[in-house]
Structure formats: C-alpha cells, structure tokens
C-alpha cells in the first residue's frame, strides 16, 4: 500500500464522473433476447432477503432451456449491443453496461478498496469470523485486531461443510469487513480490507477528506 496518495487526483476522478460502470456479460452460451433498451433505468434485487429479483435484462436460451437474467445493481442501461438481439453468443460476451450512480458511502468504499489490501473469498459461500477473532472483535472492535500471514481468520461455510480460511497477505489491522454473516459472497469478492497499522491515520484522512468534500458540495 502506498503512503503517497494524491487526494486531489482521486477525488477529482470521482467528482468528474461519480458513476460505476458495470458490464453485463452472457452467463453462458445461448441465444439472447434483450428485455431493455438504452437509457432504461434498472433496479437491483430488493426485499429483506434480496428475494425480489432486479429488473429483467435479457433472456438466454440454450437447448430449449430459457433463463431470465436480472440486474444485480441499479442504474441506467447504456451501450447495449442491439446487433446481438436474437443471436447466438458465447459465454462471457459483453451485452450491455449499467451506469450506476455512486453514493458518498460507495465512493469512500471504492477509494478504500484502492488503498487497502483486499482479501478475496476463495469460493462462493457464506463466511464468518473464526471464534478467536470474533471474540476479540466483540471486545475491542475489528480495527484493533491485527492479523498476520497464515492466521486462521474466517470459516467458510458451504452446504454444511465448514472450512477454515487462512489469511494470506501483509500484516495489518482489519479495517473494513465486506461480508455479513448469513449472506453468500461470490468467489473472488473481497471479504475484508486490511491496513498496515502505521497507515491507519492515512486511511482516516481519506475518509474525512471525502466526507468533507462531498458535504461541501
């Protein structure tokens, strides 16, 4: 993690374009049929358990097995590949982009993700802190907990198979926790953001600066 951060550059970037651009890809090979057009507003999944699907984006049909794919994030549809409508596409083909407007909290998280060490989920599963770490967090708070390479920090739970997860990365404190107990985390998504202890003041400075700059708007 670099200790030299150009605040003006980072903040300028988010101020000039406060959006996240999320590409929507074909989930597998098949014939696609779009359900939205450029400029449509789309909604993310909702409901207490995220059980209400997001806006339907496209249907993909492979061997008479149609599947409706919904938006996972809210925003506006752009750059839709209309030439692919009704055509057979390969898995991973880009179909459209969703322009997602960032909230202040998301901007802070996005900046932090650029400066923290992000420890990713090894498999799509539910995660919870190892008992020892959990009890230390309850006593002191996550940001007082220093973890080292090789420490058992989490338990991964999938189909009632619980597997310890060992931290791989530089020594640091648990600054950000990106998972919630009981909520599944996709493989590769960050579970925690770790910061070297001496860099904590710098992180705090980032948060304060973003809050101040956005509040001043």
């Amino acid at each position: 993690m670099s200790s030299k951060i150009d605040f003006d550059e980072i903040l300028g970037k988010y101020k000039s374009d406060p959006y996240n651009y999320v590409d929507v890809l074909a989930v597998h090979t098949g014939r696609v049929e779009f359900k939205v057009v450029d400029g449509d507003d789309v909604q993310a999944p909702s409901g207490e358990w995220q059980q209400i699907p997001g806006t339907r984006l496209y249907e993909i049909n492979r061997e008479r097995n149609p599947k409706l794919i919904s938006a996972q994030i809210n925003g506006t549809v752009m750059d839709i590949r209309t030439e692919l409508d009704g055509q057979f596409v390969e898995a991973g083909e880009k179909l459209m982009t969703i322009r997602h407007p960032l909230k202040k909290k998301e901007i802070i998280e996005a900046i932090l993700k650029e400066v923290l060490y992000l420890f990713p989920a090894p498999e799509t599963a539910k995660y919870f802190f190892a008992l020892d770490i959990q009890s230390r967090i309850e006593k002191k708070g996550a940001r007082e907990i220093t973890i080292d390479n090789g420490d058992e920090i989490l338990t991964m739970s999938l189909m009632k198979r619980d597997t310890p997860v060992y931290y791989k990365g530089e020594r640091g404190v648990i600054h950000s926790v990106y998972f919630k107990p009981g909520v599944s985390v996709p493989q590769g998504e960050p579970l925690i953001g770790v910061c070297a202890p001496d860099k904590l003041p710098l992180i705090q400075k980032i948060i304060t600066r973003v809050k101040a700059d956005w509040d001043a708007e």
Binding site: W49, Q51, I52, A125, K126, L158, M159
Partner: peptide
C-alpha cells in the same frame, strides 16, 4: 448443485447453499 430452492409467500424464490 445441492442448493435449496425456497419460495416466499409473495412468490419470490431464493436458493440457499449454506445454512439450515
């Protein structure tokens, strides 16, 4: 893949891969 498919009273469906 073994995931449990559940339907809420409002008709929405979720699939759970972990839990009991």
């Amino acid at each position: 893949d073994g995931g449990l498919r559940l339907r809420f009273d409002d008709g929405a469906v979720v699939v759970e891969h972990s839990g009991e």
